[in-house]
Design a protein around this nucleic acid. Structure first.
Lengths: 185, 185
DNA sequence: GTCTATATACAGATAGAC
DNA sequence: GTCTATCTGTATATAGAC
């Protein structure tokens, strides 16, 4: 994960695993098969367990804020960032890994939020034409400047306070865009 | 650009350039120096010329829509996507390239938009606490699901119509979040 | 099953002729 | 300045002993 597909040699891998190279080949057959197994496994373990608890009876801005914080916590984690970089670097050679990543992460999270937003619209708590598009925008806003700087390795992993502030800003902006307007607006 | 730093061999590069390997070495000295020259040059040529014409006297939603379209046109271009993937893959080995990318692209665009948004706030056309944060959210929304799918090579480059629709959706959402509320709201 | 030793290929970089 | 030929290291993958 630290070196990427090309730079990580089978010698290094065997050495770090404390076994010989032949043992690695006995278990996985070839380098590309080992790589696919590692990456698809990481997609599930890192992105699979989302911490979103979208209770329809709670205050929606609070729910959005907590979801935002949980999402940022996951995607800003160093392992997720390394995973994302690795998949992007090799998505030409291993297209199925990009799909596994997309489905386990962004797609799943967006679908769950869209379902919640749909309920809020039905209740008259929020107002929007397309809950799926709105959910996409919500997570897109969370992949903002802070995320970009972390992905590009231009800054350290943010503190919990910075993450909370970012989550607060995004959930507030989302609410301004999709709240139910007061009468006269 | 098509292979990335590790997989692109100096033999291939020399062959594609129609010269011998020694000629490449005479001009650039080493592989890393050649790589840095290519990438930083691409950062400027691809991201430097932004097509944003932010006229303060025009309708702000129209200005935002046109800026959104121009931004998407650039970042969804195949060359920009390849550049971004390459920089992410090598940002550990070449941190200064990530900086050059960030400054030439996201930072520059965001600063220009923030300046425009500040003017709109001063005029009372828009309403927001932090124009820089709002500008960041605007471009973050444009790096949404469509962008993510292109980056991950999960779909083809979108048509002009799809780009326009995405730009329309984002500029509309931005306006809903930052418009000046009517009296009574 | 796991090891050491090796086959084969190709990488980045350089020497020296023209 | 540009070429061909070569040095040196290291990669993936395999053979065969224990």
């Amino acid at each position: 994960m630290a070196s990427g597909y090309g730079a990580a040699s089978m010698d290094q891998i065997a050495s770090k695993a404390g076994v010989s190279k032949q043992t690695v080949y006995s278990h996985f057959g070839a380098k590309d098969a080992l790589f696919e197994e590692i990456i698809s496994s990481k997609c599930e373990s890192l992105l699979g367990a989302d911490g979103m608890h979208l209770a329809p009876d709670e205050n929606p801005e609070k729910m959005l804020f907590e979801s935002a914080r949980a999402f940022l916590k996951v995607v800003l984690h160093q392992e997720s960032i390394t995973l994302y970089r690795t998949i992007l670097a090799e998505c030409g050679r291993f297209p199925e890994l990009a799909q596994a990543f997309y489905r386990a992460g962004p797609k799943r999270a967006s679908e769950r939020l869209a379902e919640y937003l749909g309920k809020m619209v039905a209740r008259g708590t929020l107002q929007m034409d397309d809950p799926r598009a709105a959910a996409g925008l919500f997570f897109a806003m969370l992949r903002g400047d802070l995320y970009l700087q972390c992905i590009l390795a231009l800054r350290e992993t943010p503190s919990d306070e910075e993450v909370a502030a970012e989550a607060r800003m995004v959930s507030a902006a989302f609410m301004r865009a999709y709240r139910v307007p007061a009468s006269g607006d």
